Computed example of a mutant assay.
Amino acid sequence: MRIENYREAFLNYLEKNILVKEPENLYQPIDYIMSLGGKRMRPVLALMSCDLFGGDFYEAMEAALSVEMFHNFTLIHDDIMDSADLRRGKQTVHSKWDLNTAILSGDALMIQSNQRLEHYEGTTFKKLISLYNKTALEVCEGQQLDIDFERMLDVPMNAYIKMISFKTAVLVGASMKMGAIVAKASSKDQNKIYDFGLNLGIAFQLQDDFLDTFGSEDFGKRIGGDIVESKKTFLYIKALELADSEDKIKLLDLYSGAHNEDEKISEVKAIFIKYGIPELLQDEIQRFTLKAFNDIESLSLDKLKKAVLKDFGMSLMKRKT
């Protein structure tokens, strides 16, 4: 089945299952954030994984919805912590309503995401809820690391990879493993499909780092936004490692002081380019993508199904937005 078919099936299910009820000011923000769109990558992966392992992908729909609801809960709270006014070109929940409503609706959305797993019984439920709780806690840990990095000028690369693994990639891995659990795949396949999702999720986030600074305006947000916000991405961390003392001092100043935004973007990008950092980042993206593809080879799937996973990974890494 094509990716678009999984996405269409999920969107139809989502429309029927996200209902506004009383009190409206609690549930309207949930309906709003869930309807803002996005690639729906995580629920699609849950459905695809279930299907590939021989399950009825429709049986994984509640797990897929759980994952997507949790993801959107994190977006509500991320936007609050970042004081962001826009999400996917629309007002964020806390700016459209107010801070207290956003916090409460976010909490309700997380509880609802947890409730979705009550659809399953016995061992399947136990495995799903255990994975859900482990993943949810790791996402919180990743978010805290991201906050901690805001106060640091020198972030170790291994700490950065751990942060993006927890904040972004574990939910990708969990989505795929949930689909495998519903399909009753072997424990080995469940763990290997998780590893595939994890490594692909890391590559996906590193690709985001690249596109934010060196992508086109079609990326969907201002190019250089990470630089303006002084985010400690792979580009910045690797540049600090390789720059001579003069450029290192300049880079630290650009990330710690007040500067004209356009000039800051231009000067920081020039340092990145000078030391070949964009190429090194592409190498790192390729490394994690290849790790994901190696995980595919360990799965007890036929060649055709392995090709589906590889094609999906390739399409994700070729994206321009």
Rank of each mutant, 00 (worst) to 15 (best):
I271M: 05
M157R: 07
D98E: 14
G224S: 05
I103P: 07
E263K: 11
I202E: 02
G201K: 03
K127N: 13
V155I: 12
A292I: 06
L86D: 05
F166E: 13
K318R: 13
K310G: 08
N158E: 15
S186V: 09
S130I: 05
A183V: 08
L309Q: 02
S216N: 09
L128P: 08
M41I: 15
S187G: 02
D283W: 00
K264H: 00
N158P: 00
I181G: 12
G106K: 10
V155E: 09
V155M: 10
E267S: 12
Y275K: 07
D154F: 11
L11N: 14
A102C: 04
L198Y: 14
Y6W: 08
M1W: 03
K221Y: 10
N12F: 06
N199P: 00
L36H: 09
I3H: 00
D295A: 15
L309C: 05
E59R: 12
Q205T: 09
K39N: 01
S49T: 02
Q143E: 15
N260E: 15
Y194I: 01
L11K: 12
E229K: 15
D78C: 09
R7G: 02
E141A: 10
I164S: 03
D212P: 04
T123L: 10
D148W: 10
A292Y: 07
D189G: 08
L117N: 11
Q282T: 00
K303Y: 10
A203M: 03
R116H: 12
A307R: 10
N191W: 01
F234H: 04
L304W: 07
S35K: 14
D244P: 02
F125A: 07
L171C: 05
I237Q: 04
S245W: 00
S256A: 12
E261R: 13
M110N: 15
I30T: 08
D212A: 12
S266C: 01
I161F: 14
K291R: 14
P156L: 11
I80Q: 03
G197K: 01
L104H: 01
T213F: 00
W97R: 08
D148V: 09
L198G: 04
Y255R: 07
L198T: 01
I296A: 07
P156F: 10
E229C: 00
D283M: 10
N158M: 05
L117I: 11
